[in-house]
Design a protein around this nucleic acid. Structure first.
Lengths: 169, 169
DNA sequence: ATTAATATGTTATATTATAACATCACGTAG
DNA sequence: CTACGTGATGTTATAATATAACATATTAAT
């Protein structure tokens, strides 16, 4: 089993009830701490966008974010959202989900990791888990052919356990 | 090692010189055969789009295909390309690469497989390989939390061995 | 204070994708 | 054969996603 126990817990948790407010505020603190450590500027827009991502139970598109920014009195031209998102993604505070052109806050911003997403087609929630870099079959295949990986995209779409249960009831 | 030997060969091959014309015509024949077996209609546009994908050494965007279709006398409104691509993807003759919004012909259209792509940022070629369904850590994680996978996206971007060598020369 | 680097403001436009509805082609049940 | 249902194509329009380019402002370091 390449998946770590606590990571598995997190995955399951993302599709269940949990203290989201607490979880969000811990992650916000983590981001502030990391920015301080690394000399990164968590400016008002960037912080607001991260807050929006943390608050959401589902991934947000750039234009969802844009309209929430507008509602909070920020400037609302597309580059505003894309720049903030770029910052968050580049620095590991958020991830882009390619399959659905959307963004989620990272659930483990301190760890170097290769995220894996499970996207539920019914409730539209997304669970993040990860594998240790270097341990996946993707990495092993790459090494075997001398391919130097810069970034990986690993996503699955389907139905989460809760939605599946609800459907058969 | 979860990667099969012959699959590995294919991966390496995709970034190297090979008899592309022969490889393309074999895959075209395979597609015609599969359509006959399964009662699918490989109409002129669909065949032309598959031909274009097979001919290309790199993935093609929908609008690349559209302009090549136009150049060959086909109708060239976006839905024409998207419909043909949808058909090819749904029936396993092509894959969509999410990371770059582009399409490639499938190199193993007869096999049920979960494709993996390695995208070279320098030469823009893409190698397809695959893992046996059910054997990846993605599948194991999904089973562990009761997530029912419909489709997976596994992609890596970076530098292929050839481009890396060329750069250090 | 001056300056270089970073971040934001703004306009415009590029790129990717789909909705909606009309028409056509083809196999088949009557 | 023929009319009917299905699937495929034609066409217009527009939606959704993303970036280029350049001006201005803020910050941090000298």
């Amino acid at each position: 089993m390449t998946v770590k126990k606590d990571t598995l817990g997190l995955v399951a948790g993302a599709f269940r009830q949990h203290d989201h407010a607490k979880c969000a505020s811990l992650l916000m603190d983590a981001a502030r701490g990391l920015c301080a450590e690394r000399g990164l500027r968590l400016t008002p827009v960037r912080e607001k966008v991260l807050k929006l991502l943390l608050k959401s139970h589902a991934p947000l598109g750039a234009y969802d974010i844009l309209s929430e920014l507008a509602a909070s009195g920020f400037r609302a031209q597309p580059p505003v959202a894309y720049r903030a998102l770029d910052f968050l993604v580049e620095n590991g505070f958020a991830h882009r989900i390619e399959k659905i052109n959307a963004f989620v806050a990272c659930s483990q911003p301190r760890d170097k990791h290769s995220p894996i997403f499970m996207i539920c087609n019914d409730c539209h929630q997304v669970a993040e888990t990860s594998v240790r870099p270097q341990s996946s079959s993707l990495d092993r295949t790459a090494r075997a052919i001398g391919f130097d990986i810069k970034h990986t995209v690993v996503e699955a779409e389907g139905l989460c356990a809760e939605c599946r249960e609800r459907m058969t009831q």
